[in-house]
Design a protein around this nucleic acid. Structure first.
Lengths: 213, 213, 213, 213
DNA sequence: ACTCACGGGACTCCCCGTTGTT
DNA sequence: AACAACGGGGAGTCCCGTGAGT
């Protein structure tokens, strides 16, 4: 009549489940309006587990940025770019892979969502989010620089500036698409960004001229 | 020519004060986290006045979109564009006029803020915000079309598409600037957008070639 | 270009509309939970009219008892009984006329409803309601006494006591029917009361013996 | 044999204290007008405890019916009747035991009070209250039937109908007494009900004739 | 390491009543 | 006599956090 071994208590797993559940609730409701009880229900845990691993809701939010959102950006953008031989081709591939289906666009970009909501309210959020944006921009810029050195990217462009333009336009289109619930607007954005990326190639490599230095 | 002491019981003024105070609180804290008591304190009114003019916080939010945010967009973008002889010059002027000072960029775009927060949570918000985006895009597109007919805008571009690109990039840069608290990133964006707008001019009018059709 | 004569202001009519609307709202929601704004909407009037005619919600409630409920009891019970040649026949007729349809029984007895809710909370209500009950009981008792003098009612019964029994049983059945939403229970009660009333006839007039003195 | 200091964190006790305090407040003020803060003050607890045990005021009301009022009826009526050898004697005993003192009659019957107030407003209340009435009536009817089989109750009466008459008249008298604040009216009712119950005995057992078949 | 019961502070909404006005 | 605008006090609900216990 022994008790089943049940779920072994593995703190790392518990922490990960909390982070994942919190990410999903924050993503849907925003950080401030998210309900910790809903997070716990989703994770199948209780208050005690949460406050054992995190000091407060705010700390949980910070951890979500650092341990869920930042790694997500890394996997989606930075890792492929770091491995890329031709950064432009890689960026085009990433842009292409963005879903234009409703469930995806209706949620928007987690990073941008949190940033819009919290960056002006909590300095701890802002700095952590800024760090993610910075890493994102730096990763793109570094890839472009390597491309410049290797000859796959025009030399007369500013990598940092170009990266910022890419990110801004990308986030802007996601934002518009989220509100309009219209996949076509995102489709149009993907096309524009693709065309822009083509102009970043060296002149002798293609017939196109650069749009913006 | 003395103004009456007034101040007492002018419903239009009261309503306007409520809307303005609500706009400011919503702009700062987001809609869901905004405190109606703070709105009332800012407006110098009480619960009775609010409940008399608006059925709920949600109704107040809807009214803020329609009666504060939408008119703001109209005044800033649509009116100048409607009067414009050269739409490109006008758009460049508007872009130029954007402040890069911290207090301005730290808040972000009211329209985009509300949209990010509420469009996926409340259909009433989403539709009203979408209507503002739609009017904004249509206003730019109409101005570009007129420019095409009058010869001040290249004929080989799609007005709607171009308008969407402008808005997306504009909002994206505002978003990045808000989080980074760095005016330089917005400065860079303004420059990029200005350069892009120049490429929309007819070819014979300038030496530049268009970047994106 | 003269303004239409519109509704002439007839204070008595306004007061009556307020009382009627208040009665209906109180009947449905109970006094404490009734909403004065709903009363006014039903009456097609506004706060000013109400507080011109009544000092407070409480005063309105008092007036409803005295000017709506009490007259209702008078018309339904006292007037027929006062005119009655044979009080027993008259009482049977009144009992027979009670509707067993759902909309009627679901509301219950207005007098009893208010009494249950308010008599232990507000002495002003209690006294006015007690006065209505007292008049009701006295009216039945007086009719029975006249019947006794005229020979149409058994002389070995106490009129006051018999009246109280009638009212109690009548209200009790209405109460049960209201909760059960079952007309059959009220039907059964009407039958019982009718049989009881028959036993009040003098012995030589019918074969039955009285149940309770 | 010392009792632990206890008092801390025994959910069943806490829940019971909430139910009891709620019952008393509802009994005095009516459900809708009862103040949850008063309930909590009476129970010596706070909002958190209430919200932990009950989802809403409505749920608390439902629980009060099922866990306070229904058991009260069971103990007072159903248990004695279930054990009764002579149901008529038992019923007379119960009726006799009703207090005619002011504090008791001023409150009225908790079941009837709630029923009057809520049965037409909330279907959840109505059904739960109807279930209590149904159990009450069935308990009396079952006891009468047993009496009929054993010869202690007249066979020419309908048990269900007779039970309904008893309950209706009982509740009606309580209602009148509550409003009049006069114990004599309830005294009179108890006498009437006692006399009626005597007529339910078999004919050969006593000299009396039945009043109502 | 995690559970459960509970504390307690807002926040939105409701609604009675008042005031200035026509 | 009646209206519209507004004052202002809670009421019910929500939800973050704590603490004893296992």
């Amino acid at each position: 009549l022994r008790q089943a071994p049940a779920r072994r208590r593995i703190p790392e797993v518990t922490r990960e489940r909390l982070l994942q559940a919190a990410f999903e609730e924050f993503y849907h409701w925003g950080f401030q309006s998210a309900d910790l009880d809903a997070v716990l229900a989703r994770a199948g845990l209780t208050k005690g587990a949460l406050y054992h691993h995190f000091a407060s809701k705010e700390a949980l939010g910070h951890a979500v940025i650092e341990e869920v959102i930042a790694p997500g950006t890394r996997e989606h953008w930075l890792v492929p770019l770091a491995r890329a031989v031709d950064p432009i081709e890689t960026l085009i591939g990433i842009i292409e892979s963005i879903s234009v289906e409703l469930p995806a666009i209706a949620g928007g970009c987690p990073l941008n969502n949190l940033s819009q909501e919290m960056s002006s309210l909590d300095e701890g959020f802002r700095q952590r989010l800024a760090a993610v944006f910075e890493a994102w921009g730096s990763g793109i810029a570094a890839a472009l620089e390597r491309g410049q050195r290797r000859g796959s990217v025009r030399r007369d462009l500013d990598p940092k500036d170009t990266a910022a333009f890419l990110i801004a336009t990308y986030e802007g289109y996601l934002s518009l698409a989220k509100n309009s619930r219209d996949g076509r607007i995102l489709q149009s954005g993907k096309k524009r960004l693709g065309q822009f990326l083509e102009t970043l190639r060296p002149v002798n490599r293609g017939p196109r001229r650069p749009m913006i230095s």
